[in-house]
């Protein structure tokens, strides 16, 4: 499948900023089932950009801009060819051993309620893959999908108590649940056309590590593994570690964020 992506992020500041430093995780990389045909990041002000990698092995772009900056738009456009993989991730640069992804984070803390839920819905399942698929479906059925932008700072434990959840929160809950079963799990950010073509944020789902199979994707928004309709960009312990933009600015005032993501199947 040929997927075309248009991802625009606009920051507007109530007072001009004298300096801006941002770390962008917005570059997908080639793997067995994903080939980047065309990709570019554009910024509408004078800025220097440098490419590198974070500790999780994700491709990052450092963006440095001198002020005064009243607003900045980051436009990401590209095309990616994907193929069917049953959610199994192959040919991706792995820096860290899977066991690292058993640890809890602030956004994905150990939580007795999620652990109890995980134990309950996976009881009697065949092997880890069976358990994970059950967990994925159970989360899909339990929560209504909230298409709004995720609430900052909301942890998986807090999200679990609500009736509706965003894709980020569902992936967080999935990770916490899988880790409670002693299965390494992580958060993945990327793009997907499944849930409508226009979104207020990039998509997020989860991956779990299964012996002999490696990392396998699970998307609780659909209750299935991500297929060729998804483009994988970054993975980390939780959404903050895989965030498309981590930023810091020097200046007074508030910031307003506007994100629009359009993913479509190109002909």
């Amino acid at each position: 499948m040929r997927l075309s992506i248009d991802h625009r992020t606009v920051y507007r500041f109530t007072a001009p900023q004298s300096r801006l430093v941002q770390m962008l995780r917005m570059t997908p990389e080639n793997s067995h089932d994903q080939t980047v045909a065309r990709w570019r990041i554009d910024v509408d002000c004078d800025a220097t950009m440098r490419r590198g990698r974070d500790g999780f092995g994700n491709a990052v772009t450092m963006l440095y801009a001198e002020g005064p900056i009243a607003d900045i738009e980051i436009a990401v456009r590209g095309e990616v060819l994907t193929s069917h993989s049953d959610g199994v991730v192959r040919g991706v640069r792995e820096v860290l051993p899977p066991a690292v992804f058993l640890r809890a984070t602030e956004a994905t803390p150990r939580d007795p309620a999620i652990a109890a839920f995980a134990a309950e819905v996976t009881a009697g399942a065949e092997g880890p893959v069976g358990m994970l698929h059950r967990l994925n479906r159970a989360l899909h059925e339990r929560f209504a999908l909230d298409r709004a932008r995720p609430a900052p700072g909301l942890s998986a434990a807090e999200a679990f108590a609500r009736p509706a959840a965003t894709s980020r929160d569902l992936a967080h809950i999935f990770a916490v649940a899988a880790r409670s079963l002693d299965i390494p799990a992580r958060y993945v950010s990327g793009y997907s056309i499944v849930e409508g073509s226009l979104r207020p944020t990039p998509h997020g789902w989860a991956e779990a590590h299964v012996e002999r199979l490696g990392w396998v994707g699970f998307d609780p928004c659909t209750g299935r593994s991500p297929q060729e309709e998804s483009v994988r960009v970054a993975a980390a312990l939780d959404a903050s570690g895989a965030a498309p933009v981590a930023g810091s600015r020097l200046g007074e005032g508030e910031e307003e964020l506007d994100v629009a993501v359009k993913v479509s199947a190109a002909q």
Binding site: R53, D54, G55, F56, G57, V95, L96, P97, A99, V100, L102, R103, L237, G241
Partner: peptide, 28 residues
């Protein structure tokens, strides 16, 4: 490389699950 873990000298979870092991700078 993590040879010391591969050779089983230290228990893996002692390192990989330890908050003092910082995945943020792995590979640097």
């Amino acid at each position: 490389e993590r040879r010391i873990l591969k050779e089983g000298v230290l228990p893996e979870d002692l390192i990989l699950g330890n908050p003092q092991f910082r995945p943020e700078i792995a590979g640097m």
